[in-house]
């Protein structure tokens, strides 16, 4: 592993912040809620932890894909719509009596398809990701409503409904399957981002596309791969969304893309590309999950939550900027 030979104080401090900034954020948020004596007994229970994890999973899964995109210097505004579309696709497939495994596969593929289309347009026509995915946001949402005839899709009882089911709501264990899936995928993505050639290329493209091209990286091909892979994650998030509501809902997850982007950004990624990490993203998603859960248990109105999360985003990015400003 990397061994920093020189151990000047400044260097370590920086590394330390880079690695643990989001973790401190999470600990700080938890610590703040623990200040309230009436919240403490309810907040620190296994059941509540499970609830937070279950609520965070959809954002976190989407954020795994979004991290790829943002690190490569792009953005995907269609993520929320794709989640809704996939939830409808899952519902429709189950109504038509597809085998659950087939339904899972096709739902995830549907997300991947949208991603592939996004990526192809962005790479092929050199269009700005913001615009392309803004368009796709409308297209996917419309398609979802169309496929669902403008109403929710309610299949009969089936195994997919249980992916997100809290079997015993009062205890931490057993965790819902969806939480496990996301944890495993996150670990996998950490390795991919850090140690795979593809991962290095994602960072290289986000860091400087011209240099990437100069160094023989097939930028277009890799971009299509990035958006497609992210699409798979959005599809999976849609599947979880379906399972959470046990119905396909074309109007669900409105604005979810912004929550996903917020998680990635709180986790330390830069929207100009080239930096970010999966572990940061997951912590970012958890910070938002804890904030939401905590403030609703404090009986703060939703507008308070929204204001708080808004402040947290600005604070996180501001801190990041300040930290990087110190480096040079």
């Amino acid at each position: 592993m990397a061994s920093a030979k020189d151990s000047s104080v400044q260097f370590n401090w920086k590394q330390f912040l880079n690695a643990f900034g989001p973790l401190f954020g999470l600990m700080l948020v938890i610590a703040l809620f623990s200040l309230s004596p009436e919240l403490r007994p309810v907040f620190f229970t296994g059941g509540n932890a499970k609830l937070i994890l279950t609520q965070t999973v959809i954002v976190a899964t989407g954020a795994l894909g979004m991290t790829l995109i943002i690190v490569s210097g792009g953005i995907d505004l269609s993520a929320g719509s794709v989640v809704a579309l996939s939830s409808v696709v899952a519902g429709n497939l189950l109504i038509q009596d597809f085998h659950p495994a087939t339904a899972i596969l096709l739902t995830i593929l549907a997300g991947g398809c949208i991603g592939a289309i996004n990526g192809s347009i962005i790479a092929g026509f050199r269009m700005v990701p913001f615009i392309v995915t803004l368009g796709m946001m409308g297209i996917a949402r419309g398609a979802a409503k169309w496929m669902a005839n403008n109403q929710t899709v309610n299949p009969e009882e089936n195994p997919l409904n249980r992916i997100m089911e809290p079997v015993n709501p009062l205890a931490l264990w057993p965790l819902p399957l969806g939480v496990w899936i996301t944890m495993i995928l996150a670990l996998l993505m950490i390795v991919v981002m850090k140690y795979s050639v593809f991962g290095r290329y994602v960072f290289a493209i986000g860091s400087n596309e011209d240099t990437a091209r100069l160094c023989g990286i097939r930028v277009r091909f890799n971009k299509i791969m990035i958006y497609t892979l992210a699409g798979f994650f959005f599809g999976l998030a849609g599947l979880m969304q379906y399972s959470r509501l046990t119905q396909g809902d074309p109007t669900v997850a409105i604005g979810l893309e912004l929550e996903i982007i917020a998680a990635v950004v709180i986790g330390g990624a830069s929207l100009s590309g080239g930096s970010g990490s999966i572990s940061g993203t997951i912590l970012g998603a958890l910070i938002m999950g804890v904030l939401k859960s905590g403030s609703s248990q404090m009986n703060w109105p939703t507008y308070m939550q929204e204001i708080i999360i808004g402040i947290v985003i600005i604070l996180a990015v501001g801190l990041d900027k300040w930290r990087h400003g110190r480096q040079t």
């Binding site: 050639v197 290095r200 290289a204 400087n208 240099t211 100069l214 160094c215």
Partner: peptide, 23 residues
């Protein structure tokens, strides 16, 4: 602007065109 990945480390910048040497 083009030659280097300024926010990446030396190792990545040095080996970017031929990861295959050790991947």
């Amino acid at each position: 602007e083009e030659g280097l990945l300024l926010n990446r480390d030396l190792a990545d910048n040095l080996t970017l065109t031929r990861f295959s040497a050790f991947a």
